[in-house]
Write a protein that binds this DNA or RNA. Structure first.
Length: 872
RNA sequence: GGACCCGUAGCUCAGUUGGUUAGAGCGCUUCCUUGACAUGGAAGAGGUCACAAGUUCAAGUCUUGUCGGGUCCACCA
């Protein structure tokens, strides 16, 4: 019946199945009593996101797992959704506004929010649609957004609960400030990058003697305008006796104290440090400790304010140059040294962040971290690969309070209300009357919450928490989390904390951390570098199955990807397609859907069935252990090498045998099941062609390794191996002597044992077909020949007469070389076996193995020598 | 300054608890368009497992050090 074209038309097939699966909602999961749940939450991509290779890899991995579990009978829920990405989204819409020459302040908060929502409605589905293209079998009807009504309730609830537990507080502290986004950032959101800067040495004159100085070193000279002191280490001899003196701050001529503080490292710079309590975290600590003034010299946009005197309104970097210029004029700049140091950059816009003193909201993390740390230490939650455990625990052990307030508008507004009294009110709705002062006029806090303050609730808020409901009960906790190492701190660790705090248990059991996708040169793929491969382009050119397959095939630690790598996946998909064509063309309808492998004497059939189940077991072990590329390799080898190159090659001439039809089709179908999680589209299409559409393969069962292990026939595996080696050996002869493929050759065999003889006789047809020999002549001993090449495979000898072609001496020499090699090996083994230390210490099975090898080698030499005698 | 990872064939990587003569894909060489597939088939070349020392009967695999590459964390101004 099959009219399959010779090329797998992935574009058509993917469109068809993508739509069919979705229209029928076949991946939608609901609580089902008696069924085991298996759930995964997607790392919600930014709503502003465009699919990149990292997403493609991340989603492929999750999809393999979820399809595998689905086929294994679990009620699988893969939660999909997007993250409102506060700063990123606001930036996008602000850019639109800028085109109209406006800022968000021009249009006001309400109007800005309207614009943000309409942007979201219009473009927010982009990434979700792209995820569908790669075949992600998410529970799409459940798709969530972190600013959905229900989800927002969860965020508010969490804030209020933590506030009431005193785990959220407001404080005036130094935080990371992005002058471009004009908001506070958490420590994690400030990316430290090695930056080439300078260390400026500035002379601060003594008040009582303006010709004497203390020299301080700084990387940010403009901050001197906010200096209130100079600090030295209490044990630093150089500055003994200066402590009761005063210094004069150059330019502004402010009087400065000299303080001593343990924080100062005498070995760095000059050992004297300018103290700017409002613009440096260390200085802030000292400022508090020594009761210094906190002089803020900067506006939120990074320009200097009136505290900076005549530098006011100047951008911070221009001010830096101007201050240096001025100091030069005053002859107070001692020197400038090049200095590399780590400078914080905004993770959204890459602007250099400023340590900035301001009122912000913080979460006390230590109490939350405790159970989250314990869970990983005691193995309740496992990282794969294991080495990430340490990264996680190290962060947890040194956890700092989390700055959660953002001075932007897109996000969950902080549910805090202020009246006239000092204690604000945390409330789910606008309060009407203050319980303390009786006030009735309230204003809500202007800030919104960090986006991660909503993402950390993802594993349970998506299922409807805080409402108690059946979905949550059934699907929480989820099973595994698949993500990149970059967001271990942002997301993974915080989800664990939230899980314990609000659900009382871990949100997942396994955390699989996959590699970073890099280009062929090892650079991270990024838009700005221009080295990014677009997954959608790859899908168009090679197909989604190819994209998936090649990504997994290439995933070791990090992935080094270039476009050509996807050819491998495409070729494999095409191979599956064409093997199926061959089988379908030759299989009668009644032989297509038999439930188990037929009983047959055909060696190759017994062998391929055995190999299938051995592969299946290997694949399952690998998936269960998150070793996806290993699973895929096993599949690839089995299908291409064993099934196509050997089984189908042997069987294609024997399709008149119904048992061959049945076996070939049976193994094809079982392979399609096994391959489906990896390459869902091509397998689904072929499955439908074979079964004629009873049920989508996506909902079929995965073949059972356990109940089918009985079909593995070790003897057949061994015999087939001999046959394969024999064929290869004879082909080698053909190739060496340049015998044309069309030309049949003469070949004689001999064997001492009946099993080998049987093997030859019963597979004569296969031998003839695979190596083009005239007929299979089996003798008791090999006929002696002059012009011939001979060889031994296991216990089968063969000789190919090749009149006029053979250099006998050379042939003999080759065989002697092999004998020498075997002799060397024997010598090594004998030495080991006669070594008392070895025989007494090595385990019995190793000794047995060595002995077996020894006998095998001896046998081989004997046989090679025998064959050598035939060549004369 | 701390922590982690990597160094195996020309390239990208496997190599599970130490155990024969170390594997795959791509690339390369030679041959082959016989109706599943040239996005294919067959045969082949190519590695003193970065280096050094140590542990062991036995090291690509374990330990230490050196060199080279990468990543993360950290308030040295």
């Amino acid at each position: 019946m099959s009219e399959l074209p010779p090329r797998f038309n992935f574009t058509e097939v993917e469109a068809k199945w993508g739509k069919t699966w979705e229209d029928n909602q076949i991946f939608h999961a609901t609580p089902k009593p008696g069924k085991k749940p298996y759930s995964i939450v997607i790392p919600p991509p930014n709503v502003t996101g465009i699919l990149h290779m990292g997403h493609a890899l991340n989603n492929t991995l999750q999809d393999i797992m979820i399809r595998y579990k689905r086929m294994n009978g679990f009620e699988t829920c893969w939660m999909a959704g997007t993250d409102h990405a506060g700063i990123a989204t606001q930036n996008v819409v602000e850019k639109q506004l800028a085109k109209e020459g406006k800022t968000r302040y021009d249009i006001g908060r309400d109007e800005m929010l309207k614009r943000l929502w309409s942007w979201k409605e219009q473009y927010g589905g982009t990434i979700i649609n792209q995820l569908k293209k790669i075949g992600s079998s998410c529970d799409w009807p459940r798709t969530r957004f972190t600013m959905d009504d229900g989800y927002s309730d969860a965020v508010q609830e969490v804030f209020i609960r933590l506030y009431e537990k005193d785990l959220i507080y407001r404080g005036k502290r130094i935080i990371n400030w992005c002058p471009r986004c004009q908001t506070a950032l958490s420590d994690e959101e400030a990316e430290h990058k090695e930056t080439q800067g300078n260390l400026y040495y500035i002379k601060y004159p003594f008040k009582d003697d303006l010709n004497k100085f203390i020299t301080v070193a700084t990387t940010r000279p403009e901050t001197m305008l906010g200096d209130v002191a100079v600090a030295v280490n209490p044990n630093d001899e150089r500055y003994k006796g200066t402590l009761d003196k005063k210094l004069i701050l150059p330019i502004l001529n402010r009087e400065l104290r000299i303080i001593k503080d343990e924080l100062i490292d005498p070995a760095f710079g000059t050992g004297a440090v300018k103290v700017t309590p409002a613009h440096d975290p260390n200085d802030f600590v000292m400022g508090t400790r020594h009761k210094l003034d906190f002089i803020n010299i900067m506006n939120p946009d990074g320009t200097l304010n009136e505290e900076a005197g005549r530098f006011a309104k100047m951008d911070r970097f221009k001010a830096r140059a101007a201050v240096i210029e001025e100091l030069k004029n005053l002859e107070l700049l001692e020197k400038i040294e090049p200095h590399t140091h780590a400078v914080g950059h905004c993770y959204r816009c890459n602007t250099v962040v400023e340590p900035y003193l301001s009122w912000q909201w913080f979460v006390k993390m230590k109490p939350l971290a405790e159970p989250a740390l314990k869970a990983v230490v005691d193995g309740t939650i496992k990282f794969h690969p294991d080495r990430w455990t340490k990264v996680y625990t190290n962060w947890m052990e040194n956890i700092q309070d989390w700055c959660i307030s953002r001075q932007i508008w897109w996000g969950h507004r902080i549910p805090i209300w202020y009246c006239d009294c000092p204690k604000p009110i945390a409330s789910r709705t606008a309060p009407t009357k203050c319980p303390n002062c009786g006030g009735t006029k309230f204003t809500q806090d202007e800030d919104v919450l960090d986006t991660w303050f909503s993402s950390w609730l993802w594993p349970f808020a998506t299922f409807g928490w805080p409402k108690d409901n059946a979905d949550l009960k059934f699907f929480y906790p989820t099973n595994s989390l698949f993500t990149a190492s970059e967001i271990i701190f942002f997301w993974v660790s915080r989800m664990v904390m939230a899980g314990y705090e609000f659900m009382g248990e871990a949100p997942f059991k396994d955390v699989y951390i996959h590699g970073t996708v890099r280009d062929a040169k090892g650079r991270k793929m990024s838009k700005s570098l221009g080295n990014a491969l677009d997954p959608l382009e790859i899908i168009n050119e090679y197909g989604a199955d190819a994209l998936r397959f090649s990504l997994i095939m290439n995933s070791g630690q990090d992935l080094f990807i270039s476009k050509e790598k996807f050819e491998g996946g495409r070729n494999f998909a095409n191979k599956i397609w064409n093997a199926s064509r061959l089988v379908l063309l030759n299989t009668k309808p009644e032989n297509k859907n038999i439930p188990q492998p037929p009983v047959t004497n055909d060696l190759a059939s017994q062998w391929i069935v055995s190999e299938f189940y051995l592969t299946l077991a290997k694949v399952m072990n690998a998936i269960d252990d998150y070793r996806f590329s290993e699973a895929e390799n096993a599949i690839y080898d089995f299908f291409w090498k064993n099934y196509c190159d050997w089984y189908l090659e042997i069987s294609k001439n024997k399709f008149s045998d119904e048992k061959i039809q049945q076996t070939a089709c049976f193994i094809l179908k079982e392979s399609l099941r096994m391959m489906h999680p990896f390459m869902p589209f091509v397998t689904e299409e072929l499955w439908q062609n074979i079964t004629e559409g009873e049920k989508p393969l996506s909902l079929e069962n995965w073949p059972s390794a356990k109940t089918n292990i009985k079909f593995v026939n070790p003897d057949a595996v061994k015999q087939m191996e001999t046959l394969i080696n024999l064929v290869s050996a004879i082909r080698n002869v053909r190739s060496q002597f340049n015998i044309k493929p069309q030309e049949s050759i003469e070949c004689h065999f001999s064997a001492n044992d009946t099993q080998s003889k049987n093997l030859l006789n019963s597979n004569a047809e296969a031998l003839q077909a695979l190596v083009k020999i005239k007929d299979v002549q089996v003798h008791d001993s090999l006929p002696a020949m002059k012009d011939a090449v001979a060889g031994v495979v296991d216990s089968i000898k063969f000789i190919v007469p090749l009149s006029g072609l053979v250099d006998l001496a050379k042939e003999k020499e080759k065989m002697r070389q092999e004998i020498t090699l075997a002799e060397k090996s024997i010598a090594g083994i004998s030495q080991r076996l006669s070594n008392e230390a070895f025989t007494s210490k090595a385990p019995a099975e190793i000794i047995e193995k060595e002995q077996a090898t020894l006998t095998q080698r001896q046998q081989r030499i004997k046989e090679l020598e025998e064959v050598l005698e035939n060549l004369n």
